[in-house]
Design a protein around this nucleic acid. Sequence first.
DNA 1: TCTGGATACATCCGTTGCGAGGTATTGTCG
DNA 2: CGACAATACCTCGCAACGGATGTATCCAGA
Lengths: 174, 174
Amino acid sequence: MLELAILGFLYEAPLHGYELRKRITALTGHVKPVAESTLYPAIKRLEKAGLLARATEPGAVAAPRHVLTLTEEGRQELRRRLAEPPRRDITDENRWFTVLAFLRHLDDAPAQAAVLRRRLAFLEEPASFFYDGDRPLRAEELDDPFRRGLLTIARATSRAELTWLRETIGALDG
Amino acid sequence: MLELAILGFLYEAPLHGYELRKRITALTGHVKPVAESTLYPAIKRLEKAGLLARATEPGAVAAPRHVLTLTEEGRQELRRRLAEPPRRDITDENRWFTVLAFLRHLDDAPAQAAVLRRRLAFLEEPASFFYDGDRPLRAEELDDPFRRGLLTIARATSRAELTWLRETIGALDG
DNA sequence: TCTGGATACATCCGTTGCGAGGTATTGTCG
DNA sequence: CGACAATACCTCGCAACGGATGTATCCAGA
């Protein structure tokens, strides 16, 4: 997910690590902060894999900056990851939001719609959090207010997203 | 988060690992599956820390079961973790849902309300995903339909949860 | 009779993530 | 003038996670 965010932001413009960190923090940081000790090794990984290149520039304000630019392989890799995200990227909201944030870079409406359809299929699967044997329990059946809240919130989220997904898929198809 | 779920389920009843796994899978598994290779080491960690005890029982159906029971330290530890969750447990939805699922075990309405207030404070912080400099961008200002969707969904979720939080805090206080 | 699935537990190993700490420079405010 | 925040990068070591794989039992169905 971190790698996806790095590739996504660099797809739009070359950035140095520090700026990248600020953007990632804005995107996912209030929910899940990004430690520098996670970001810099991730940048190194991507560089080693040939997905990005580094150019040292005298620092505008302080220490010298390493301006990061995606290579052509890097640009392809982002499109590949967006077109065929692993299941986790579809189901886990944090990851899914990252996919959504960069899905515009997939320059192909049918491919975009296909990704949205995977999320739609996932949300349409009947799923609960609590079961009585095999039977999913509905919010109304729980006497615990917290668990009832959990189901209520999950349901509201899901409804909002389903509406948006169906609309957007329609627009992409039409 | 895994540890919290283990402590939470065992607080309700002693279970063997396989059953524990099924419950955790029901709770968070459709979003973020739990690998056995994550669960069993986690159980060992908790056992080593003296939070749970293990009793071998001849297997009802197949291999012998290890029935896991919380120790008194384990029960205290769950209540402690629920009363004072780290910030990540408040901000990250996956983790927060786990807290919510077991918050009923915190046998003290003011303490429960305090935890809900932390989540409320977090959701009330003005936060966006995208910025123009320092100014948060509103959904309407984005021309990218996917990022617009992201903001729309996040806002809908947030609204539903805020309503529920205020109601429930009111009920706990009243 | 044999295969496959469910039950039940476990380890190995590579990757990722994070807290703590370190280095160096520039601008700001008292 | 000195302290501090912000800029900018980095490493170490541990914990956590996850895919692959292994072991063994029992039962249903082909």
